[in-house]
């Protein structure tokens, strides 16, 4: 385990930016800001125009760490406390889960909950619970 510092202000302002971006995307192109939906839509775009706005959004996202660097003077910390194998297995499971579940933290957890969608509230409570359970099992039962 890697210790991380409690960062309420940076996290709060980061969250406000995430919610602001979700609001702006709905205001301009009328779309939900869900990472899963944006990514899956790029794999099977309904038209060239549909692919283009998703690619533009993704290109903007990737620039985020550099803007964070310009704002804070350092690149965002990125520490990976799990093995490459778990990273890949986890990625596969996340990909399948978000496809069957129609969304992830941004789509269900932020945009869907902000619309008070009952599907998104159920989805968010479900994945938060299994994430807590998985981390507990990995760190305190199997690894403990």
């Amino acid at each position: 385990m890697i210790e991380t510092a409690f960062t309420p202000w940076a996290s709060l302002w980061g969250g406000v930016l995430i919610g602001f971006a979700a609001t702006l995307l709905m205001l301009t192109v009328g779309r939900v800001m869900g990472a899963t939906g944006v990514l899956a839509g790029m794999l099977w775009p309904s038209s060239g125009q549909d692919f283009a706005w998703r690619a533009a959004l993704l290109a903007g996202m990737v620039a985020g760490p550099f803007v964070a660097f310009a704002l804070t003077g350092k690149m965002p910390t990125l520490e990976v406390p799990v093995s490459p194998l778990l990273l890949v297995i986890g990625g596969l499971i996340v990909g399948m889960g978000v496809t069957f579940g129609s969304g992830c933290t941004s789509g269900h957890g932020v945009c869907g909950m902000a619309r008070l969608s009952s599907r998104s509230i159920v989805a968010t409570l479900t994945f938060m619970s299994t994430t807590f359970a998985t981390v507990y099992l990995v760190r305190h039962v199997i690894g403990g």
Partner: peptide
């Protein structure tokens, strides 16, 4: 699906 996503995230 959401339960699976949480396992992968964890």
């Amino acid at each position: 699906g959401s339960a699976l996503f949480g396992i992968g995230w964890g």
